[in-house]
């Protein structure tokens, strides 16, 4: 996991001399993910490096070290504070990442049939249409409220799943993002499927594939490639909107940040750090998806279509 998730050092052989900006970007990514992974691993293993909940470097050390430097001395207390809260932030990011990735992945497997039904179905097309319109037409926060406050879905979480997270409400949040995300993903995938030329379907049928086989072997492999750019958008949206889980008391990044802020009243610093953390996650996702797009790229399909 460690090496595959970070966008480091796998730089394009095409760009032999990376620009200074690019280098800085990659370096920042390495630092961010290195710090995150180290903090997570330290927590999972029960704190072999530093006690769980403690930063790797003592805030006092940071403060005195920086105070000695003429240029940075003004920021010494601020950066010491950031150091102190960093383990909590990393803990929040963990849930943010898990919620986003699980919701996106599960939502995808609901979205594909929804999109196929919408394009090729008859009665099912209407079912799919009603579902997507309803979920895209109401706010995500209201949907989370329905699931949590209205239906109290937490009580239905099966025993097998309820041990995974400290609190069942995480599953409620994931359910909400899956249902909502599936509607948005279905819409993107539908658009992509529709952009696959009619002749592809005809040709599949002409060699004797059934309609379902043609959709599976011919239409989807192309359509899903066309969908990658908008799918990246959905990924980014989900990272950001996962913050709404805080309002049904899921202790993800925003929740933890807000808790610290309420305790310490240091709003500017905390929300600057939180915003930066989200930005790092979003940029990682974009970078990752660009690589996926390159990886599955086929001349003439998706991206810059040349016909």
């Amino acid at each position: 996991m460690a090496d595959s998730t970070r966008p480091a050092n796998v730089s394009d052989p095409g760009e032999a001399i990376p620009s200074a900006g690019r280098l800085l970007f990659v370096a920042a990514g390495v630092v961010f993910w290195g710090w995150l992974l180290a903090t997570w691993v330290n927590r999972w293993l029960g704190g072999p490096v530093v006690p769980v909940g403690e930063p790797f470097v003592a805030p006092g050390t940071v403060e005195s070290a920086l105070a000695a430097l003429p240029l940075l001395s003004a920021y010494a207390t601020d950066l010491a504070f950031v150091t102190r809260i960093s383990p909590e932030i990393a803990r929040g990011i963990w849930l943010t990442v898990v919620i986003t990735v699980v919701s996106l992945a599960v939502g995808f497997f609901i979205a594909v049939p929804l999109a196929v039904a919408r394009v090729y179905g008859r009665l099912t097309a209407y079912v799919s249409l009603v579902y997507t319109e309803l979920l895209r037409g109401t706010p995500l926060l209201a949907q989370l409220f329905v699931l949590h406050f209205g239906l109290n879905m937490g009580q239905y979480v099966p025993v097998a799943l309820s041990d995974v997270f400290a609190r069942n409400v995480v599953w409620v949040a994931i359910l909400g993002f899956v249902l909502n995300g599936a509607a948005y993903q279905a819409e993107y995938i539908r658009g992509a499927i529709e952009s696959v030329e009619e002749g592809q379907l005809t040709a599949g049928r002409a060699i004797g594939l059934s309609k379902v086989e043609t959709i599976y072997y011919v239409v989807l492999p192309q359509g899903l490639r066309y969908a990658i750019p908008s799918w990246t958008n959905e990924f980014v949206y989900l990272i950001k909107y996962s913050s709404l889980a805080a309002f049904i008391t899921v202790p993800e990044l925003y929740y933890r940040a807000f808790e610290i802020a309420s305790d310490t009243f240091r709003y500017p610093m905390i929300f600057a750090v939180t915003g930066l953390a989200y930005l790092c996650l979003v940029l990682t996702a974009t970078e990752l998806m660009a690589r996926v797009e390159d990886l599955v790229a086929i001349p003439g399909v998706g991206g810059d279509r040349e016909r």
Binding site: K240, Y267, F271
Partner: peptide
Amino acid sequence: GVVLRGTPIVVILVFMYFV
């Protein structure tokens, strides 16, 4: 633009209000 599009709206709103 990158910063505004990369930050959750709730963080932006809280930043405007509290910060």
